[in-house]
């Protein structure tokens, strides 16, 4: 398994874990918590994808993070310790700290979503929601199949147009006109095609009864253990987070950072994908 043991768990466990990670990351800007979630998400993404793709995706996040960080630190007058002032702009130590914390929070969220994209593949998503939303999930998987079909149809339409009409004017309007014609042809073609698909579906009994699904995922003992562990950790972490960081404030002055037990439990919870790897030791 290239993606590690955690990705082989039941989709419900993976989904709950990512929901937990993302919700917790969203809900605190306490610097230590932000750093911890960043580290855990980054480590997991490196584990899933390798170092180089990790750095590439990190590079994609930078503009948005810088923007939010600057926005939070630049246009802010609530901080007490002023660093620099010019007209309406004043940069304070507190504003800068807060900007960094929000930027870090955003990095962590984006990293968690990148991990989610690796682990929660489309089949797992469909498995989870297929019974609640049968039509929608069927449509999502049909759309995914139609996209490459559209692209390859697009190429053949383009080729046949080129063969029929011969040389093209390479001007901007010429290109635009060609693209529009291609879109029109593709839509007409797609609509007529889709009717055939629909008739074929009807012939095979679509809609005559409720959908059954082929379940690749089973609910074993390990799922029960990990799910229970995760639920306990969620409760413990909520309690420790509220007690430990409730008094923490950025404004008007940044509160001192105290050592808390919450850091340990938080790291343990977010490190669940690594914890389940301990199972390998048994063998």
């Amino acid at each position: 398994m290239a993606k590690g043991l955690f990705a082989t768990y039941h989709p419900a466990v993976c989904m709950l874990f990512f929901l937990t990670a993302i919700c917790f990351t969203f809900s605190t800007q306490h610097p230590v918590y932000v750093v911890l979630t960043c580290i855990m998400a980054g480590a997991y993404l490196v584990y899933l994808r390798g170092v180089r793709p990790f750095l590439r995706s990190l590079g994609m996040f930078v503009p948005m993070v810088v923007f939010v960080g600057v926005l939070n630190s630049l246009f802010n007058a609530t901080g007490a310790t002023s660093l620099w002032k010019w007209g309406p702009f004043s940069v304070t130590v507190e504003g800068l700290c807060y900007g960094l914390a929000v930027g870090g929070m955003l990095v962590a969220i984006l990293l968690w979503f990148a991990c989610y994209n690796e682990v929660m593949t489309e089949d797992k998503f469909t498995y989870l929601f297929g019974r609640k939303l049968p039509t929608i999930s069927l449509m999502v998987s049909m759309i995914s199949r139609w996209i490459p079909r559209m692209v390859s149809r697009g190429h053949s339409v383009y080729d046949s147009q080129e063969a029929l009409i011969g040389c093209y004017d390479q001007s901007k309007t010429g290109k635009m006109k060609r693209s529009l014609r291609m879109a029109t042809v593709l839509t007409g073609l797609g609509m007529e095609d889709s009717v055939q698909t629909a008739d074929s579906m009807c012939a095979r009994g679509y809609g005559t009864t409720s959908r059954t699904s082929y379940a690749r995922f089973k609910w074993h003992t390990r799922e029960r253990v990990v799910m229970g562990l995760l639920l306990v950790m969620i409760v413990v972490n909520i309690v420790l987070l509220v007690i430990g960081t409730g008094s923490f404030k950025f404004y008007p002055r940044v509160s001192p950072i105290e050592p808390l037990w919450g850091y340990l439990t938080y790291a343990l919870m977010l490190g669940l994908p690594f914890l389940v790897e301990l199972e390998r030791l048994k063998r």
Partner: peptide, 24 residues
């Protein structure tokens, strides 16, 4: 509880919109 034919326009248009980012 739509019939198969009635969900097809949505599928085609959505696929075209997503593929459009690549085609165009």
């Amino acid at each position: 509880r739509r019939k198969a034919r009635d969900i097809m326009p949505i599928i085609v248009m959505t696929a075209l919109a997503v593929a459009g980012r690549l085609i165009f």
